[in-house]
Design a protein around this nucleic acid. Sequence first.
RNA 1: GCCGGAGUGGCGGAAUUGGUAGACGCGCACGACUCAAACUCGUGUACUUAACGGUGUGUGGGUUCGAUUCCCACCUCCGGCACCA
Length: 842
Amino acid sequence: MCLTRSKTEHQRKQKYALANYALAISLMKPQYIPQNIEAKWQEKWDAEKLYRSTIDPNKEKYYALTMLPYPSGNLHIGHWYAMTPGDARARYMRMQGKNVLFPMGFDAFGLPAENAAIKRNLHPKDWTYDNIANMQKQLRSMGAMFDWEREAISADPKYYTWTEWFFIQLFKNDLAYRDKKAVDWCPNCNTTLAREQVWGPDRVCERCGTPVIKKELEQWFFKITDYADELLKFDGMDWPEQIRAMQTNWIGKSHGASVTFYSELGDPIEVFTTRPDTLWGATFMVLAPEHPLVTDLTTPAQAQAVADYKEAASKQTDIERESTVKEKTGVWTGGYAINPVNDAKIPVWIADYVLMGYGTGAIMAVPAHDQRDFEFARKYDLKVIPVVGAADAEPLDGDTMEEAAIVNGDMINSGELTGTPGADAIPTAIQFLEERNIGKGTVNYRLRDWLISRQRYWGSPIPMIHCKSCGVVPVPEEELPVLLPDDIEWLPSGESPLKLHPTWKYVKCPVCDEDAERDTDTMDTFMCSSWYHLRYLSPDYAQGPVDPEEEQYWMPVDSYTGGAEHATMHLIYTRFFHKAARDMGIVHGDEPMLQLRNQGQILGPDGLRMSKSRGNVVDPDKQVSMYGADTVRAYLMFGYRWKEGGPWSDNNITGVSRWLQRAWNLVHDTVGAEVGKNAAKKARMIERKQHQTIARVSKDMEAFEFNTIVSALMEFTNTLIDASKDAAGSDAFNDAIRDLLLLMAPITPHIAEELWAVIGGGFSVHQQSWPTADAEKAKEDEITLVLQHNGKTRDKVNVPADISKADAEALALENPSIIKFLDGREPKKVIFVPGRLVNVVG
RNA sequence: GCCGGAGUGGCGGAAUUGGUAGACGCGCACGACUCAAACUCGUGUACUUAACGGUGUGUGGGUUCGAUUCCCACCUCCGGCACCA
């Protein structure tokens, strides 16, 4: 007892001594406090112009682009999630020896500025630029390699001069035109919207969620449909299947024929059909209620019914009208048309299931082979004539069939084409139409021209002048920009102050010098963002939208990252814009962005979309002040599949924070250490892990798989911590630490820079070359050979990695476990997979 | 209805030219340190079984010596489009 106690006393004293020693050491070693190093390095990087990117013809260029933010006031954690992996990858490319451009700017025009201005009695310009100043500060706290000398702000006159200039070029090239038609109008935002800015089955405004209404207005359109076919081509483009599919569906190309029917009175009625082989089964026609020929066709007896129906249809909302569940309704005009293929006299109806906005607004109805026409025919007791034979089925009976037969069978009941095999039916029918000059093969698109007029103040003015005698004429290019007036007054009506400004719109016509008026609409802000990637290249260039030398060097964008929600808006507009600019000789190449990758979305900790009203918004500034920018960056890359996103987690971020602490301590504890006695034993193991990690990180960087990059770096760090006891100070160990810091540099740029300085690497870690993986060094010497019986693992043995087939099989056959499961049977087969397993079958 | 994507421990997620399912991290349990707690460090952690073993990647089949991976038929969830002629 007594002896034990005294021994314990002694141990305790020793422990205290050790603890005091450790405390002394820890006082000398700086603690990892991210806030102490992050701002310091950001300032140094700025001062040294570390991220300035200029043309270097001797280097391969790499244009990395991330979608520019709207200056809403505060950076969202989603911005970090979208941007920091892009930054890591841009840094990786730079260390790979490429001349990398990674710019940033602001999509600064738009409605929220006006709404905020009205609410708080501010000027939209002040609101916007205050927000930009704040967000620039926040963006700098990310530690991203943005080249701020290339910043572009779309609301800046030196930017929107060229947005206006582009408008004029489109106008001069016949790609911009005015048209009066029923367009979508948001009563809350007081402006028209493009079709793609109207969302969902409820048809609500993309911005504010208010249901849109139709308004008949004269507006500016861009002829994006001229490029429909080219926009369907994605050759050589590394874009996600999802986005290509969405754009393809949006453009909605369908092949078929246009056929001209004639009314009894001789008016031509053109229809589009994807099934010209069913023409002989057209037993009636249906026009959209708004179709211009409806009045001519309507007989006096039906006039009242037709007028009532049109009236009712016009009062319906689009939601009601386009509902697929609604029972079909319609009325007969009293008129007839002649089916040009068989001279049959068929009644002409109007019905709201035919839309004026698609095709010609008129259809031939083939109830036997189209479900919508079938339902209509049965309801109004119209004839049903089958003209396509369902292969190997009983012949259809038009009077008794219960649903339309949607088949591509042989043609029947079709005059001289009867008997045409199903496979040839459509081309044969088209040939028939063309020979008789009653129709032709054609294609139809769902895509519509891009409506760009907005009845708002805070946007780029449309540089056009309306003159009573000369019509609509462009502002002379040398007079650009048409500046927005600063002295504006808001009216309770919410109307654009441009319209009501006392002097702004009154000008002389540039052609005849008579009194004229400016266009008081501004452009859709998607116009600004369609070419921002060009303005970054030369934001101060005054002779054109982009310096041709810069354009020639940097374009196209090599890698573009951003949200998938822009699939049918920004991402289609910018492609159109690029192709139009190419045809005007402003840019080269067919596509603006070679590679596209979409990130997912970070949700609140509760798994729901972040919103102020839910109170589940994660503020990046707060996270940065708590953990530091490096931890926030690495956590966002580590915790999610970047493509998928997911809920923010306060728990999981601690794992990343601990990793950086460990890495910090590892470097500080081992720098300048004396070589341990057992260092040589560990050298091979360290070198192997080092080269395996280089290979993994490089591969995953290319593939945008950031989560596995961080886990590989954690493994490598843990391996080095394990090895440090024996191997610290050895060449192998120091070399591994060096590479660890290089591999960390793109992910966690501040701590990597700091620790790089600690090991005496010199400024800057970000100017070093990316390490190269040596496959020979990464190779395993020993492997775990899996021994299986009938495909089930029964044992595992450690063997040399290059074990021969014979040796491995012998090992398996004499293994007690395998012998037991073989239970005396002769093995039927033995399978050897080198480096992996032996499977004994029997 | 059509197009696209995804279903793996308590949780985030690894691993697919078919070859040890669950890397890395969180959480949890136990231990060390501490008067104590926190931090930190160590060990363990799919389910089931006393153990041998058995089961297990949304469901049901199939191919194979061997399937998270390939094939067939479904289910669920997410995103987009939707009377598009």
